[in-house]
């Protein structure tokens, strides 16, 4: 099938009107178009391009938190020094998306709405407690990011809903976060195993922890068992190892051309452990 209608929207209202008429949004096109070219799924019949909509742009950091417009590029996010310092896991994730070209072209909205279980920014944003705002011609709602994903390529968003922004509350003092991905090569990777960690330390103790796993289950999700292994601990090697094992135990990896389930599960523990170590080091710094 080929595209029979393509419009470039100038405002959010234009986009919502098009969506109400059955169109699908396209932002950077790095998932949608590339996926269609490679035969993953055909292009929708009707497309509305949203890249010119000024209201959807922007990266704003305030004392209360971080707001990302749906069109914020990976590059804009990972180059932001405040995000690097306070929302490190997100910066880690955006830094390793594809290549230079992918980072310049790909958007946070597209990354989240594509809902790949291997996608980079989901885990960090879940750990950081992000919410997303969805708007349709009928109205607006804000939901926790963890509730957005329902399966590979699937979200709770209705066809008429547009992701407007991502909000992230400011992390508590003494918090550090990190995202790590198993990488066979240095560029153009796709996560075979990824792990996000956010920890808050107070004195010698871990007072809060959020751990999420990527590419290890049908959706990116957090792992309460791993969090429990850390909260209240000293954040030492035994606690880290236990948390890593908990991630491995919670995972339901598949076997495919990228690796066997057994390897993925073993790597889940290794990568999660390393992400936690890094988050702790940042929290203590």
């Amino acid at each position: 099938m080929s595209v029979s209608s393509y419009v470039t929207a100038g405002s959010v209202d234009d986009v919502l009107a098009a969506l109400a008429g059955g169109a699908r949004p396209v932002a950077g096109g790095t998932d949608l178009v590339v996926g269609a070219r490679s035969g993953k799924s055909s292009l929708p019949e009707s497309l509305v391009a949203i890249h010119r909509v000024a209201e959807l742009r922007g990266v704003r950091v305030s004392a209360d938190g971080l707001r990302l417009g749906a069109l914020a590029s990976h590059e804009a996010i990972c180059e932001n020094e405040e995000i690097q310092a306070r929302y490190s896991a997100l910066a880690d994730a955006c830094t390793i998306v594809g290549s230079h070209a992918t980072r310049a072209q790909g958007t946070i909205g597209g990354n989240l709405m594509n809902a790949s279980p291997a996608m980079e920014t989901g885990g960090p944003l879940i750990c950081l407690g992000a919410t997303v705002t969805l708007r349709s011609a009928a109205g607006e709602r804000t939901i926790g990011l963890a509730d957005l994903f329902t399966g590979p390529g699937k979200t709770v968003a209705e066809p008429g809903e547009l992701l407007i922004s991502v909000d992230v509350p400011a992390p508590a003092a003494g918090t550090g976060s990190a995202y790590l991905r198993l990488e066979y090569r240095r560029q153009m990777e796709i996560a075979v195993v990824g792990a996000s960690a956010l920890v808050t330390v107070d004195g010698g103790k871990v007072t809060d922890a959020r751990i999420a796993m990527t590419a290890l289950a049908p959706t990116i999700r957090h792992v309460p068992e791993a969090e429990a292994a850390l909260i209240g601990s000293d954040g030492g090697p035994a606690a880290i190892e236990a948390a890593g094992e908990a991630v491995a135990a919670a995972s339901s990896p598949i076997s495919d051309v990228r690796g066997s389930a057994g390897y993925r599960r073993a790597m889940a523990a290794v990568i999660a452990g390393r992400a936690i170590e890094q988050a702790l080091a940042r929290a203590r710094a």
Binding site: S99, R185, Q187, V257, R258
Partner: peptide, 24 residues
């Protein structure tokens, strides 16, 4: 190249047929 039991390519694309990049 990884083949399935019938001898078909399982990774006939550059995502999973991993060439070395300039960064490597």
């Amino acid at each position: 190249t990884q083949l399935d039991a019938e001898g078909r390519h399982r990774n006939a694309h550059l995502t999973d047929y991993k060439l070395v990049t300039a960064s490597d």
